[in-house]
């Protein structure tokens, strides 16, 4: 059938830890994303409020983009540690 990875992969005993962490972090980010979308839809004027010289919409946009990167780095840190712990 030709399934399975293109290269041989070693056993990954940290897989379930990483899956569980990934799901939790996904819901964490999704909460902020959904909040942002709902605020835009139901309280659009709130996006015009000025915070530190910027509209709330700009602050939200920057925050969501930067938050994605910070959460990605944190996720990688814990996954790498788990791989060392479980796969050594």
């Amino acid at each position: 059938m030709g399934h399975g990875p293109a290269v041989k992969l070693g056993k990954d005993d940290a897989a379930s830890f990483k899956t569980s962490l990934g799901v939790k972090m996904f819901f964490g980010y999704t909460f902020f994303y959904v909040l942002f979308v709902l605020l835009n839809v139901y309280f659009p004027k709130s996006m015009e409020i000025i915070i530190f010289g910027q509209t709330a919409a700009v602050v939200w946009g920057f925050s969501l983009i930067i938050l994605a990167f910070i959460m990605a780095v944190i996720y990688n840190h814990f996954c790498t540690q788990a791989e060392k712990r479980y796969n050594s």
């Binding site: 399934h3 990875p5 897989a15 899956t19 990934g22 799901v23 980010y29 994303y33 969501l64």
Partner: peptide, 21 residues
């Protein structure tokens, strides 16, 4: 960009583990 969060947290590693081409 939000879509990449879905890719990283839920899809990246399982896709690598399960697929070939």
């Amino acid at each position: 960009l939000g879509g990449w969060v879905v890719a990283l947290f839920l899809v990246a590693e399982p896709m690598k583990r399960l697929g070939k081409y």
